[in-house]
Write a protein that binds this DNA or RNA. Structure first.
Length: 208
DNA sequence: TGCCAGGCCCTCTTTAGGGCCTT
């Protein structure tokens, strides 16, 4: 198991959908998975420097009152940049979390070397019978025990991590692979559904 | 002032449109 196969599963709660239109992070949650086991966690609220609207308060359960006195985004993201340094990254609908990670780190001139993989894209391929591919639906669909509140960063990161491990184990068993390197997981996420069977049946594993 | 996302994927496609998923 190389460093490349240790992954950080992360989730942001934010003021809205688009950092390009001024939205900011208000909470980050993340777990580190090493050799299939959660070995570390990161969770922090952060103050975006403005009030959040009522939709976000209701959606996340994070209130303006809770954000009073919290450290700034810049302060939290400095610590988070250290936490993720050198590791690959996983998120549910990773294009969303990547945009906020990039935007927040750019503000403090910090960067990361890891690649992203998306649990939602893999789920869309291997759970084609699920009613939808929202995180909460997939947790229920895969019978993963869930005790907590969705739409809080650490809980969603923990649930995404469990889903990630269940999905990789299912693929590994189904195709009798020794393991699923991160690079293969990325390929699964990017391979069209009708080519997926061919990719895995042929064990086209390229760990590079 | 007021506007306001973006990437992936499917299909009645590719000279496009709309649904899904994230907050």
């Amino acid at each position: 198991m190389s460093n490349a196969d240790t992954v950080i599963v992360l989730d942001f709660e934010t003021t809205g959908l688009s950092p390009d239109h001024g939205d900011r992070a208000i909470e980050i949650g993340a777990v580190k998975i090493e050799a299939g086991v959660v070995t570390d966690r990161f969770q922090a609220l952060m103050n975006p420097g403005r009030r959040i609207n009522s939709f976000i308060e209701n959606y996340t359960g994070i209130t303006n009152y809770m954000l009073q006195g919290q450290p700034s985004c810049e302060e939290v993201m400095q610590q988070f940049a250290d936490f993720i340094q050198g590791f690959n990254l996983v998120a549910h609908n990773s294009s969303f979390d990547k945009r906020f990670l990039d935007a927040e780190l750019t503000r403090i001139s910090r960067y990361y070397q890891g690649d992203f993989a998306c649990s939602m894209l893999i789920a869309r391929r291997i759970y084609q019978n699920a009613t939808n591919h929202k995180l909460s639906t997939l947790i229920d669909y895969t019978n993963i025990h869930a005790e907590g509140e969705f739409h809080r960063a650490l809980f969603d990161a923990e649930m995404t991590a469990k889903l990630w491990l269940v999905m990789l184990e299912q693929v590994r068993k189904e195709y009798t692979l020794d393991d699923i390197p991160f690079s293969l997981a990325q390929k699964i996420a990017k391979t069209p559904k009708n080519k997926l069977n061919q990719l895995l049946a042929n064990r086209v594993i390229n760990a590079g």
